[in-house]
Amino acid sequence: MEPVKIVIADSNELIREGLKSVFAQEDSVEVVGEVDNGSALVKLFSEWKPDVVLIDYMATSFRTEDIKAIHNIYPDKKFVAITEFAKKNLIQRALEAGISGHVLKSCSKSEIVDSIKETHLGKQFFCGKILNELDDQEIKTGQLSCDPISLSSREIEIIREIAQGKTNKQIAEELHLSAHTVMTHRKNIMNKLGINNTAGIVIYAVRENLISPNRYLFNS
Rank of each mutant, 00 (worst) to 15 (best):
L175Q: 15
K43Q: 00
I203F: 03
A59Q: 11
C107I: 03
D27V: 04
I6T: 10
M58A: 08
E161I: 12
G101Q: 12
K109M: 12
R207A: 07
R63K: 14
F79Q: 12
K169M: 06
T141M: 07
E30G: 03
D10F: 07
C107K: 04
E161M: 11
E2D: 11
V53N: 03
H176A: 13
G128A: 05
Y57V: 14
I211Q: 07
L151F: 08
I156F: 03
G38S: 11
H71C: 07
G128L: 01
V202M: 06
R63S: 12
I82Y: 12
I139N: 14
E161K: 13
M183I: 00
Q170G: 10
I6F: 10
I203P: 00
M1F: 02
K20Y: 12
K78N: 01
H71G: 11
V22F: 08
E84N: 13
D76P: 02
V103G: 09
L175W: 11
S152V: 13
E34Y: 15
I55P: 14
C127Y: 01
C146P: 02
S178A: 06
G101W: 09
E161L: 15
Q137T: 00
I70E: 04
L14N: 10
K105A: 06
F23I: 03
M1I: 04
L217M: 07
H185L: 04
S220N: 14
I156K: 14
H185S: 03
R63H: 10
R63D: 13
T184H: 00
Q164F: 05
A81L: 05
A24P: 02
L151S: 07
G194A: 08
V182R: 00
D135C: 04
F126H: 04
L104Y: 00
L175D: 11
Q137A: 09
G128W: 02
I189C: 08
R207T: 12
H180V: 00
T119F: 01
I139Y: 13
V182T: 05
E138A: 15
I211K: 15
I70Y: 09
F62H: 03
F218C: 13
V206C: 01
A9V: 15
A81Y: 09
